[in-house]
Design a protein around this nucleic acid. Structure first.
Lengths: 146, 146
DNA sequence: TTTACATGGTTGCATAAACAACTATATGCC
DNA sequence: GGCATATAGTTGTTTATGCAACCATGTAAA
């Protein structure tokens, strides 16, 4: 039998990711309470644009680990609520570059604070050392499967 | 600043759960390749019924960490493809008990093997000790937020 | 330059999640 | 018994995912 055989009942939680579901729900709740009217998925796109504005949709796909249709529609919705704008690239007419609007820029600090607050709620009672190892494991899982 | 401040770029992955997304996709792919024609979410319901057949929808909500509408519709879809059957409880007419069909019972072994195989693909190069700690951390996150 | 192929993005369709509003049944209390 | 409240499940709406098919543009090779 392989090394990492899971004990009864643990396999389910590991595969289905109850922890990250719980984190998404809590972040969404914290956004709502603070009057930040975006979804977690919209935030996940904005998150990368805050780090590097003007990414192409394909770059957003890679950064967010979502597929092309998902990004197309998230960008559709973000454009509707006026948080981003598609701009056709001049070098390559296939490419849409996605730019933040001023409204989106003002959301950055507040929403990043809420994300960090959510993380602190999530990691209460967990030591730094444990978190480091958990991050490493999740990163390896991701690398193994992506 | 709190204990577990995340370094740049790590917060995103931890909150959005790239690792569990990758695992779900891989499991779905492995199901498909092996001719197991169910979705991961359907599997997640069957998983608990294999452990205890005849659970109520509410018990399935708690076990799967999904809300009531989600379970209603997953059970709808599982009934359509003839893998479960709703049976009204005689003690309490509000309750639907969910029972596996013979078809669903034959799926158990194959799909659990595929789930374990997927986990082994995911955990390649990760030590047992690291996995134990990661599971503890994810469990604590879940307990902190649920 | 024409043809083939690769890349970036969109659309259609089925499944699923989150949230609110709703129905039906059960329970507890006066 | 009758009323308030809690519990179990359903329905409607919006958002998002996964997959396949598709269109437009770019690139490279014959």
């Amino acid at each position: 039998m392989p090394n990492n055989q899971f004990k009864k009942g643990e396999l389910y939680s590991f595969i289905t990711g109850k922890a990250s579901t719980a984190m998404s729900r809590r972040l969404q709740k914290n956004f709502k309470q603070a009057g930040v009217e975006i979804t977690i998925e919209q935030w996940s796109v904005l998150y990368h644009l805050w780090k590097a504005d003007g990414m192409s949709q394909q770059q957003l796909c890679d950064a967010t680990f979502k597929d092309k249709p998902s990004i197309t529609r998230l960008v559709d919705n973000l454009e509707k609520i006026n948080l981003v704008k598609r701009v056709a690239s001049k070098d390559d007419r296939r490419i849409n570059l996605i730019f933040l609007t001023p409204e989106a820029q003002t959301l950055q600090e507040k929403s990043m604070d809420l994300a960090n607050q959510t993380l602190n709620e999530a990691l209460k009672g967990v030591t730094n050392g444990q978190v480091e190892i958990a991050k490493e494991v999740l990163q390896m899982v991701y690398e193994n499967l992506k």
